[in-house]
Design a protein around this nucleic acid. Structure first.
Lengths: 360, 360
DNA sequence: CTGAAAGCGCTAACAA
DNA sequence: TTGTTAGCGCTTTCAG
């Protein structure tokens, strides 16, 4: 039994702009204008249209919208690893601010994997994002090449290509880290170790550089054996501390390239039977939420997630919506500052003994 | 000086399917087929097309694609709060698996805020997601209503509407929690407190129910004053423990509705000068990564993020790609199990003193 | 196996 | 102020 070709009854009754236009007895252009709040629409008619829209709970198809308007209203956000609590806090802020301005966000984590990274950029480009924030704290070359060509507004942390439409979020690592070193020095520490971040990561290098510079400023000689390679993970921190524990005069304090590392360090110290800060002081970097409740609460250098997120969105918008009141900005300063909690104290060596022999 | 209307030179040289077709000297239909790997395309021609595509580094506009095909290849993922480490771990798994199957993901966190929740569903619907995973661990009514109407495949945890296209991930809270209670009971604990999750959250209620049931199974009477309201945050855990600390005979152990709560509890115990597990044992729930390095490492009930993520994607795909080899599945079981670390030990009461007077 | 052509749902000229 | 119409870049019948 062949069904007739045109079944009036069976019409799937799609809910599109045409349906609204028909029901409100206006043209689709008027519906479009109403939705987009074009001021020239007669209020009476607009109301009629809105009524129909609300009645049917209609909303426009953003795919179609994006296709024709050329704007997707999507912002890409690339982070290194979503499982490091620093990033979710950043993502949250970024999302809040983006949504506030009418944007959707597309998040991807690279896990420091070039293949993954490349793949995720490709996906963002396919989805025609209006801009992307690369919050990986260190340019990863392959990523750059792909992005640089396409003309998408970009924002990076610390370093990035100098082309038009690219903004930089310059983090002043030195300020907070110097405060940390000074804090330690004031407490009497002279033997301070540093656990770095991943070797290739630009921000990690900057943090290390800030540390060595601060050391110098405090007149403390730099002992290369005190610089241990970490990778910004709990495990990296534990491994680094394990190494530090074997040093002949053990450092009296250790600064870490991030909080996860510091938490790993604290844990290894605890495991070894030593205590923080009585035996060793430790300082982190990031000030993730959980740093407040580690045992003991972590003294750390804070870098504002909120500031970072806000600047990133602002930077992107300044290029996307260039014509508007916000002029394209190229650099944003992000400050850091020390938060003193309880993982830092007097060095164990100070009150007990006095070493006369200068360290080589 | 008026510019001529048609400037041949100035053509913006857009990179679309037409360009490829022209350069490969085929029709756009053939390019489309080639890209979509339709098998009927002549390999020779296909190669010619691919060469041009690669040369120009072309990729299709997914907006246009979605518009015409009706499939966006986007999966929505709604979580309660991205800043609770449990969720990033889940998101990571979800993303990995989704991407593996060619999907993009759109994540949103509701922060238990109905307005936000509603807004984020709306956004997902606008973006025409092919399915959405609601991993908020407890249906939040307004959310349901919006989703239920539209015919989008859905997957929930624990409870959800019984319509077609909706799958459930049934978590067996009881198994792991019973193991926890038994573990405590075996150690000699008879006075165990429980810090719940947010009042309205279904999963929180289930965890509490599993706890009380397990208590009964172990022959331990339930004392309502030992049930403290928490909210799955660090702060909630701290507040709850502060309350517990004031109880006349203080409980010898406390189980928590999640790890964040447990970490807060551990912290407050530490603050009070007591020690875990010597004075009080604590057990968490989730087994987030950081639970391994709390001081002391947290004994907790593990719920597999990976299993959850994988089942969610599978469930969604089973409905989206219904015709395929995977038949629509409606229920997935997720198991839980105890991971014993060092936050649990013998009750302090046992060896020290003997209370003769029975508790009222 | 390939091409022509009709849209997908919407916005934006341009006309009226 | 409103309507008509031409696409946005792609997939998908339907012919050839």
């Amino acid at each position: 039994m062949p069904r007739p070709r045109k079944t009036a009854v069976q019409k799937p009754e799609r809910l599109d702009i045409r349906t609204i236009a028909r029901l409100a007895d206006v043209s689709i252009a008027t519906v479009s204008r109403t939705i987009n709040r074009v001021t020239t629409v007669n209020p009476q008619i607009a109301k009629r249209v809105w009524d129909v829209i609300n009645e049917l709970d209609y909303f426009p198809n953003s795919q179609a919208r994006a296709l024709v308007s050329g704007r997707s209203w999507i912002l890409g956000l690339i982070v290194s690893e979503i499982t490091n609590p620093f990033f979710p806090e950043l993502i949250q802020g970024f999302e809040d601010i983006a949504v506030e301005h009418g944007y959707e966000i597309l998040v991807s984590s690279t896990n420091y994997d070039p293949k993954r990274m490349s793949h995720c950029i490709r996906r963002m480009l396919e989805r025609k994002v209006d801009g992307v924030a690369v919050m990986t704290f260190g340019i990863e070359e392959p990523l750059l090449d792909q992005l640089a060509q396409r003309n998408v507004p970009l924002v990076f942390i610390d370093v990035g290509p100098k082309r038009d439409g690219v903004s930089l979020l310059k983090v002043d690592y030195h300020h907070g880290i110097r405060q940390g070193v000074q804090h330690l020095a004031a407490l009497g520490h002279r033997d301070i170790a540093f656990v770095t971040g991943p070797a290739g990561l630009h921000s990690a290098q900057s943090r290390l550089a800030a540390f060595t510079k601060s050391l110098k400023e405090c007149g403390i000689p730099l002992d290369p054996t005190r610089i241990i390679q970490g990778d910004h993970t709990l495990e990296g921190g534990m491994a680094a501390m394990t190494q530090l524990l074997t040093l002949k005069p053990m450092p009296t304090a250790v600064m870490c390239s991030n909080d996860m590392t510091a938490i790993g360090v604290q844990h290894t110290i605890y495991r070894s039977g030593l205590r923080v800060p009585d035996d060793i002081s430790v300082i982190g970097f990031d000030d993730i939420h959980i740093a407040e409740v580690t045992i003991p609460p972590l003294t750390t250098v804070q870098m504002s997630r909120f500031e970072l997120a806000k600047s990133a969105v602002t930077a992107l918008r300044s290029h996307i919506e260039a014509s508007k009141d916000l002029a394209p900005q190229h650099e944003f300063k992000i400050t850091t500052s020390l938060v003193v909690r309880e993982s830092t104290g007097l060095p164990r060596t100070a009150p007990k003994r006095r070493t006369v022999k200068p360290r080589t």
